[in-house]
Amino acid sequence: MSFNGPIEESFPTPADIDRSTVSHLQKGYKISARKLPISKSGTIDEMEKKLGIPVPEMIFGGNMVSIEHVTTGWRLEFNAYDALDRVDKTDRNMLKVAYSQEWSSSRFDGVPFSHDPANVLSREKTHEGIKEIVKPFDWSYTTDYKGTITGKPFELQKDNENPIPIELLKRPDPILFFEEVVLYESELDDNGISLFSCKLRVMPDRMLLLCRLFMRLDGVLIRIRDTRIYVDFNTGKVIRDYTEREDAFDKVKQALLSSGRLPNDLTIALRDPNQISHLVPEVSHTLESLTLP
């Protein structure tokens, strides 16, 4: 892992960016991935100003994955900034942590929450005014980002007839290029996790990219939002499959127990979207495609 650089040094430099990017050329498609350390304070301040919301504490602002069609210049990229720009910046979709009720009722409903003289003394005068929520936004960093298209503006069109050919992807074709790139991660102030990451695999004739948001708010909710990009290099067919899954935390936990999980394994399973995604019901699904010339 590279050094985040002394404080005054501008990082990453173009050379760092170059060094951190890996690419693979396959049948006219250039597939790239860039992995850098988390962004520095200066970059974060700029991002927050432009986005209008605080960014997650683990923000990989320089990371990206992309698929480029070399002859036309059509390019599909996944990056943290564009993903965060699609997070709700209002208070309309704000979740509350599991113990929020307990936390706020003890402070604001007039019932003394402590017999501690230190608390009771200062409580009246110091507490009353604090009711304003600072910078309301969807702090779970849930996004419906499906990638950024640049270059030649070929748009993906709705197409329910052509799902991703799973059987072809199950074949053990050699994997020529594989990368896993985190775009952002938040620990939600130790109330769970919100992780937005991509992984991709390139085989001789096709590739699959999975960009996943995994959001677990402990005791409250679990969300998985998957964007899958399938490219058939021989036909130029690009398929985008976007699925939203969501369920109450306790329901997923129950489903794990019913599937034979031991109680001691639950926390580990609840950290891994691969172990639970099939237990979380689908709430939304769209299919799009385009054929590159």
């Binding site: 704000m94 979740l95 942590v97 929020s100 706020s104 005014g129 600072v134």
Partner: peptide
């Protein structure tokens, strides 16, 4: 911020 504020998470100052 000025003064005290509530975290948007619904708990914490």
């Amino acid at each position: 911020i000025d003064g005290w504020g509530l975290s948007p998470r619904g708990a914490g100052f």
